[in-house]
Design a protein around this nucleic acid. Structure first.
Lengths: 217, 217
DNA sequence: ACGATACTTTTTGTATACGAGCGGACGGCA
DNA sequence: TGCCGTCCGCTCGTATACAAAAAGTATCGT
């Protein structure tokens, strides 16, 4: 796509994900434009796109605010994700190639390898491998629309840094789900894959809630 | 939202739905701007929104084209819709008010009343009542995100004028599904409601395909 | 001292003007 | 005659300038 608009889009997105723009912050077009080194026009375009992805919220004559989510919202998001990705896993079971399955296995291996210990570097590696895993499943579903519809749902947990709340035990369990899903794919058992994915995501939400109410308020 | 941008948005949307802008047509910003009586800036915004809703497709340095769908795309859309709306019906079963159920019944009555005969006026009334029915179910699900995620899926069949392909018998069957869904809601049986909705939409797709291959080509 | 109102400031929304990229047409060359 | 390169025109992409709307502030009246 266009140059400046994309640049603005990426910058804003990064700043939201890293937390530089906190939840609820008022994104003033001029200021953001200066940050990205472009004019207001491409910034507006970028904000529109982010609005479509639900990362920011537009208020009619007041501009864009970075989105914030209640626990209720987050449950909604996880349930939708479970449904979507469950469906993706179902479709993937009959379509996935053995090459893709091998890749999934690499992801699971990577996660296992990085699991002992809690360094920031390791957490990021695990997060990346996890994203790859889910990405591969989604691709294997061969449903472009599903992929697009899902994109924004997948990113929100990342923004919320849910992974920061996971203990070593949580990660081990999570990766056991991954392994089981691989088995289900090998068996071409769509319902099995679907159910594992559903379980996987519901468990993730549960961990989020439990650790959340412990640490936060 | 803003005035001119919304106006442009509505105008373009209408022209796409009514077919004034045919599938694959190149929407030139200047021309569209003239049509709507505003400048290019709000038009660009409107096009961006429509892009997010998958009604138009952006090509990097060439602008917006109205989207077109293959039969395969349409199947994908119907399957996703069945999943989504099925889920909505599931949620609605435990949340819907008796007032809303009464409204559903009015929609079903309206459809029955308009069914005998094939006048354009009647078709439009049936279409409207059908939309209302599905809208009420969606609202009753009380899931804002679900509603938004679904919006673009629901509209595509309307744009494709799938309803024009339905025979009187199809409509009768369709409305029987509506009645059964109402029963499921009254019984607060979530799975029942979900399955009826799923059936309802799969049948709709099937009718589309059958009548399509008969009439077209 | 408190509230309301008018004015100023800030920020968004819209229009227009300018620059860049792409495609098509024309002309030159083999 | 057929192919390739260059040039021109069309449309998009970006910047800037201007108008409108809302928030904040100070002043006036009660």
């Amino acid at each position: 796509m266009s140059k400046a608009a994309d640049l603005a889009y990426e910058r804003i997105r990064q700043k939201i994900i890293t937390g530089a723009y906190g939840a609820g912050a008022h994104l003033k077009e001029e200021q953001v434009a200066e940050d990205a080194g472009v004019s207001r026009t491409p910034v507006r375009e970028a904000l529109r796109r982010l609005d479509a992805e639900h990362l920011v919220k537009f208020v009619p004559n007041r501009g864009a605010y970075v989105a914030s989510w209640s626990t209720h919202d987050i449950e909604e998001i996880f349930v939708l994700r479970a449904m979507f990705e469950g469906h993706a896993a179902y479709r993937a079971a009959s379509r996935i190639t053995s090459a893709a399955i091998a890749e999934l296995e690499l992801c699971a291996d990577e996660i296992d390898a990085q699991t002992p210990g809690q360094s920031e570097r390791q957490r990021l590696n695990i997060l990346a491998a996890n994203q790859r895993f889910h990405g591969i499943v989604l691709d294997a579903a061969h449903s472009e629309r599903l992929t697009k519809a899902l994109a924004w749902l997948v990113e929100i947990p990342i923004i919320l840094r849910t992974f920061e709340r996971y203990s070593e035990k949580d990660i081990v369990r999570s990766n056991q789900h991954h392994r089981e899903m691989i088995d289900a794919f090998r068996a071409r058992d769509a319902r099995w894959a679907q159910n594992v994915m559903d379980t996987h995501l519901r468990a993730a939400f549960r961990r989020y809630v439990v650790h959340g109410t412990e640490n936060q308020n």
